[in-house]
């Protein structure tokens, strides 16, 4: 690794931040916590750069780090607050940081109700643009497991958001209400 590579690396890492943040916010449900996750991810990546294979997918590598940090922190918290059945986590809603405006409240709440494994699979496939193979690598599971999680996530979301019942669904219920009013 040469010093000449550093500015490129800085640009590459910086370019990855919006995607990492979007994933972290959707995963953790809280902007502040998500930003801590992203920061820890960047620090971890920088101190483990020697493990990154040049020419492979930097984004997938960063997402793997973030995802693992999220899960180890989640397990730690769950032990700390003695929440073996995850009921505390089930009550987590999105709390935007001050000054950060978040839309799609209905969708976001429904997303927060999904089990972690289904939510992360859906986010990686449906939003972050990873292939099933990449998502399986990031989550450390089989491709078939990812497919099945994504399917179940979509089903549950459809049930919660009742997309089956609504003919002309807008971006969210507020839009729908506005159109009807």
């Amino acid at each position: 690794m040469s010093s000449e590579a550093e500015p490129d690396l800085r640009e590459a890492l910086l370019a990855a931040v919006p995607g990492l943040r979007a994933f972290a916010i959707s995963l953790a449900g809280q902007v502040d916590r998500a930003d801590d996750l992203v920061q820890d991810t960047l620090l971890r990546a920088l101190s483990n750069l020697h493990r990154f294979e040049q020419g492979t997918n930097l984004n997938a590598w960063l997402f793997t780090i973030l995802r693992n940090l999220f899960h180890s922190e989640y397990r730690k918290r769950r032990r700390e607050i003695e929440d073996p059945d995850g009921s505390y986590v089930g009550r987590l809603k999105v709390h935007p940081a001050q000054g950060v405006h978040l839309d799609f409240e209905d969708f976001r709440s429904a997303l927060a109700e999904l089990p972690d494994d289904q939510r992360e699979a859906l986010l990686l496939i449906g939003a972050s643009g990873f292939s099933y193979e990449e998502a399986a690598q990031i989550c450390g599971c089989a491709v078939g497991t990812i497919k099945s999680r994504v399917n179940r996530a979509r089903q549950r979301l459809a049930g919660m958001l009742k997309v089956d019942d609504v003919e002309d669904l807008g971006p969210d219920s507020m839009t729908r209400a506005a159109l009807q009013g």
Binding site: V17, P18, G19, A22, D35, L42, F104, A127, A158, V163
Partner: peptide, 30 residues
Amino acid sequence: SQKRIGDQLRAMYDELMQQPVPDRFKELLD
């Protein structure tokens, strides 16, 4: 239905992607 879920997910995500990168990350990399 699958398309609607997908569209909503991407719309929500796009909004998050367009948030400005907080200075703390730029400073960290600087």
